[in-house]
């Protein structure tokens, strides 16, 4: 479930407000969006992927939050980690072409 909108990183571009498929966020004039309807969050991590500032953190717990701090996430390199893993950050674009599903399908 969406847990953190980092006020220090967020530029209030509101891309997450648009991109969230279940309309969890609300715009706030001149400020970061608010998590208005957390119970509607489906823990799909799409908002993280669409955030150009790596300002969002989705807890992996589908039913709740982890109570984790932004400092801990930064220290662990977690903010933006999913976006990097699929090749959607500037330095990781070559990963977009890495998909070893064919090996998984053949294996075992």
């Amino acid at each position: 479930m969406i847990e953190i909108v980092s006020p220090s990183r967020c530029t209030a571009c509101n891309i997450c407000v648009s991109a969230c498929p279940t309309n969890v966020f609300d715009k706030t004039p001149g400020a970061p969006p608010v998590i208005a309807r957390p119970d509607d969050c489906q823990t799909c991590f799409m908002c993280e992927l669409y955030c150009p500032e790596d300002a969002l953190y989705v807890s992996p717990k589908a039913g709740g939050w982890q109570g984790i701090s932004e400092d801990d996430l930064v220290a662990a390199g977690t903010l933006g980690s999913y976006r990097a893993a699929i090749g959607w950050t500037a330095g990781t674009a070559e990963l977009r072409r890495v998909d070893t599903m064919h090996r998984v399908l053949k294996g075992g």
Partner: peptide, 20 residues
């Protein structure tokens, strides 16, 4: 080898485990 293939095939699968 399969563990590596699984990871590169489906980053979304490992995300919750890594974060927990």
């Amino acid at each position: 080898a399969m563990r590596q293939s699984m990871r590169s095939a489906q980053p979304n699968f490992f995300l919750p485990f890594d974060r927990m």
